[in-house]
Write a protein that binds this DNA or RNA. Sequence first.
DNA 1: CGCTAACGTGACCGGATGGTCAACTTGCTA
DNA 2: TAGCAAGTTGACCATCCGGTCACGTTAGCG
Lengths: 200, 200
Amino acid sequence: MTDAVRALRSDAARNRDLLLAAAEEEFAERGVDASVADIARRAGVAKGTVFRHFATKEQLIAAIVTKHIAALTAIARAQHDAADPGAALLEFLTAAADRRRQRDLTVLMSISAGDATVAQIRDQLHDDIAALVDRARAGGVIRADITATDVFLLICAPVHVVENLPGAPDDLWRRYLGIIFDGLRPEGASPLPRPAPEWT
Amino acid sequence: MTDAVRALRSDAARNRDLLLAAAEEEFAERGVDASVADIARRAGVAKGTVFRHFATKEQLIAAIVTKHIAALTAIARAQHDAADPGAALLEFLTAAADRRRQRDLTVLMSISAGDATVAQIRDQLHDDIAALVDRARAGGVIRADITATDVFLLICAPVHVVENLPGAPDDLWRRYLGIIFDGLRPEGASPLPRPAPEWT
DNA sequence: CGCTAACGTGACCGGATGGTCAACTTGCTA
DNA sequence: TAGCAAGTTGACCATCCGGTCACGTTAGCG
């Protein structure tokens, strides 16, 4: 839309990265209520610097969310040309959940749901998931009534399930991913009571 | 432990109920950060009254959580003697999710996880779920490697899945409960990558 | 009734938080 | 290397929140 943004000064670029990393950790540990002051301290800068890079706390969150959705998109594309469509979809869900394990950013996502950039990159992720799902469906390894939106919504389910059990093993989510993925298989599938939701 | 608590005065009892209801709504709408002042306003009382009934905000949350876990226990027991063990388990999960649909209290639960009363009534719920799960497993309608703890953890999964899609139909969660329940069925089940978690 | 213990009230407090800004420092270019 | 724009700083502000408390109000018993 507007012209390209001016290149950041070297120290500013480094501080921006430090801030994003620090904010990610802080949000993962303390939740959305992590304070900007703590984030700044963790990054080794003053509070004012945070607001130079991100006008509001919400925009900082949006930046983190954007980065993570982009990472999921990359994971999806890495499976794009895999030989086995079923294994590709499972591998995507596994890698996505694994990435989410340590830093649950779901709460952050819902906050920046209104952000235009986030919405756009999220649509892109949806498209890449659709490619995986279509191939799997065509190959008959998942049931016919499963859509990309279904898979999109189910990405974080295994990780969330485990969160309700304090002190659970780190990789317990794999168990529930197994259960859910079995639910996507055509063998012994019962008709679903509701149609798949529309995207957008 | 201590002797029975003094009976509440009539107006106090009514205000307590009003407060619990108002707090439930407020927490459901605004999340854990709903302010005590707003809750008091919604209940039509002054802020001081809130703290007369519940020493801290955490105790107010614990009271709500206790009420809701008790409701889930009642739902489980209602299916205790049902004819079809598979239908009984599905019916429990459906009723439990339905109860959770409008007011998601998962965040509240994790806050009051340390509360002794909450822990006790939660163990009770686990026991009642175990009865349902054992019957279903014995009947061969769910796979042999599913435990009561699995089901306990999966209760809120369908509702949570839908939360990531703003503007979704009210009963979309039924679709994902269908998928997950299919994942619990023995037909076409693949071995799970991790053992069931221990309870306690 | 009338009395009192239980209850309700809302002003108030200490602390924390997101955000601002004028003064200062530093990377970069010419 | 000099000069300046870009970047950094931390004190400061307005606001909000959980929790307290001295005082006014009321239910319910005798």
